[in-house]
């Protein structure tokens, strides 16, 4: 799958620039839901990496497969303009996202690439999982550092 199909073939800037529906744009809850699904899978591998649970190749592989697919979810309707934390309540999406859409997208692409590598390593033992997991966490952090507000 190419990155193009992930974000749709039209220019992402345009599709992301759809106006927000209202204060309660459902896109906000939906994108948060997507991140919760990340956790659902990312967390299983994290627990193994940190020794909170024993390594289980099948479980790790399933989680990595899921994360691979979830990070392919098309983002084009999840980030309407006007759904930033300066405009509405209930979101931690920093307004800087919409000033730097190209960079925001490239940080998503970094995550996709890391998730692809993680998928290829997760089932090969704890020593293979660890670095691939760490690299994926690094791509989450790189985006949160730049574009996610402190918790409210």
């Amino acid at each position: 799958m190419t990155l193009k199909t992930f974000f749709g073939t039209c220019a992402l800037g345009l599709t992301l620039a759809l106006p927000a529906l209202a204060e309660t744009d459902p896109a906000v809850a939906q994108r948060k839901g997507q991140f919760q699904l990340y956790l659902h899978n990312f967390g299983v591998m994290g627990a193994m990496v940190q020794g909170r649970m024993d390594y289980d190749a099948a479980l790790a592989q399933t989680a990595a497969d899921n994360l691979f697919h979830i990070t392919r979810h098309d983002q084009s309707r999840l980030w309407p303009e006007g759904t930033d934390s300066a405009s509405i309540e209930g979101t931690r999406a920093n307004p800087a996202i919409w000033d730097n859409l190209d960079d925001f997208v490239s940080k998503f692409v970094d995550l996709q690439n890391a998730a692809e590598n993680l998928q290829s390593q997760a089932g090969n033992g704890l020593d293979a999982l660890q670095p691939a997991f760490g690299a994926t966490a690094g791509t989450c952090q790189a985006c949160h550092e730049a574009y996610r507000d402190e918790a409210s």
Binding site: L39, F42, G43, G46, A47, Q50, G134, A137, C140, Q141, C143, H144, E145, Y147, R148, D149, E150
Partner: peptide, 17 residues
Amino acid sequence: SSGLTPEFDVVGGSMAD
């Protein structure tokens, strides 16, 4: 040492530094 919460959310904001 990892930026990961017990729920495996990932650190951001000024705590990332």
